[in-house]
């Protein structure tokens, strides 16, 4: 489990702060099949890190390791280390429920609960006991919806079911839901793949705004999206992190031939 730790500052070309999350020698197996090979990757606060690569390359698998969502899947085994603020998340004293409160997740397809808009956002604070009073809770819901850029659209119908919203609104509701529990990292698994271009643009703007507060990881299929929204990019291929670095560098001057091929559209 505990692989080589610590962050080698020399390897980092850019002088950035201590990584929020750092994965080292991370390998994931589904039964006999290895899905991720020895991945080293840092995620920094106040930055958007995008993960790109062809389907089935392991980028979503990596994402699900960060909040240990892979625990849910039967037969899934994770080796290596992921540290958050320097603390190993696989350590026995780490509670997965507390971890997931710190690491929020937004899924590929908007998945609002079959509850009202208000209750969707209030769900997380409620289970974690974040608000003492009803008015605290209402305040938290409103501010979360505001930060997700949804409040103005739904303020008059907070009691309506979350599923009555449009796809893009649903996805922003899911982002508001994730924000409401006060995470430090937000993981987004192809958050725009089910949305139309206008809704996608709204989410992309939102992601850029949220960067001021959170460390954000976005898995995306679209290289244009990665270029637009992220500061750093990692390219996965066949379960291997081929290349990782500043987005501008990855897209203009990749070091690896496979990255070059992918971004120029030769495969994927």
């Amino acid at each position: 489990m505990q692989a080589d730790l610590g962050i080698d500052e020399d390897e980092e070309k850019e002088p950035v702060a201590l990584a929020k999350v750092s994965a080292r020698s991370l390998s994931v197996y589904y039964g006999d099949k290895q899905a991720l090979f020895d991945v080293d990757l840092d995620i920094h606060a106040n930055q958007v890190t995008s993960l790109i690569g062809p389907s089935g390359c392991g980028k979503s698998t990596f994402l699900r390791c960060v909040n240990r969502m892979n625990d849910v899947i039967e037969g899934c085994r994770v080796e290596g280390s992921i540290r958050m603020d320097g603390h190993e998340i696989h350590a026995p004293e780490v509670d997965v429920v507390s971890l997931r409160r710190r690491v929020g997740m937004v899924f590929q397809n908007p998945n609002p609960f079959p509850k009202s808009i208000f209750e969707n956002v209030a769900y997380g604070p409620r289970i974690h006991g974040l608000s003492r009073t009803r008015s605290d809770l209402e305040e938290l819901v409103v501010s979360s919806l505001e930060r997700a850029g949804l409040f103005d659209e739904v303020k008059d119908r907070l009691g309506e079911p979350g599923t009555s919203l449009s796809g893009g609104q649903q996805q922003r509701l899911c982002i508001a839901r994730a924000i409401a529990v006060g995470p430090e990292v937000i993981l987004m698994d192809e958050p725009c793949s089910a949305l139309d271009p206008i809704a996608t643009a709204r989410i992309e703007e939102l992601i850029d705004e949220l960067r001021a507060t959170y460390a954000i990881v976005v898995v995306t299929h679209s290289m244009q999206q990665a270029a637009r929204i992220s500061q750093r990019t990692g390219f996965f291929h066949l379960g291997v992190l081929v290349e990782e670095g500043e987005t501008s560098k990855i897209f203009t001057n990749p070091e690896d031939a496979r990255t070059q091929d992918y971004i120029t559209g030769r495969f994927g």
Binding site: N67, M69, V72, V97, S98, L99, R100, R101, G104, M105, F107, N109, N111, P112, F113, P114, Y123, G124, I127, H128, C174, R177, A178, V181
Partner: peptide, 17 residues
């Protein structure tokens, strides 16, 4: 749908919740 379960677990809810 499993997406609902994952959405809830991803917020840090326990299985029972």
């Amino acid at each position: 749908p499993n997406a609902l379960r994952e959405g809830s677990l991803g917020l840090g809810a326990t299985k029972g919740e």
